[in-house]
């Protein structure tokens, strides 16, 4: 699980162009949206694409997205339980 969390942090920093952050700046329980990393709605769409592209997970219900993108901790748990690749 720790390897997956690190991989997610690296992917998020690279794919969302969070130039000023590195892996150590993101705690597992930091909020991804709002006061945490401050991601926006376009970032949320990019995360949905990332789940599909990298892990074969298709999120179609927006409410499911809200629950999944709470933090790295929650996201990693969801991916480990639902990934198809």
């Amino acid at each position: 699980m720790d390897a997956l969390k690190k991989e997610l942090k690296e992917s998020i920093i690279e794919q969302l162009n969070l130039e000023d952050l590195n892996v150590d700046d993101i705690a597992d329980d930091d909020a991804l949206f709002g006061d945490g990393l401050g991601l926006d709605s376009i970032d949320a769409l990019e995360l949905i694409v990332m789940l599909d592209k990298d892990y074969g997970i298709k999120l179609t219900d927006p409410n499911e997205g809200k629950a999944v993108f709470v933090s790295i901790e929650v996201l990693a748990k969801y991916i480990s339980e639902h990934r198809t690749k």
Binding site: L16, N17, I42, D43, L45, E46, V49, D52, K53
Partner: peptide, 9 residues
């Protein structure tokens, strides 16, 4: 086929 929302905007 993974259209990028961040590029599209």
């Amino acid at each position: 086929y993974f259209p990028s929302p961040a590029v599209f905007v």
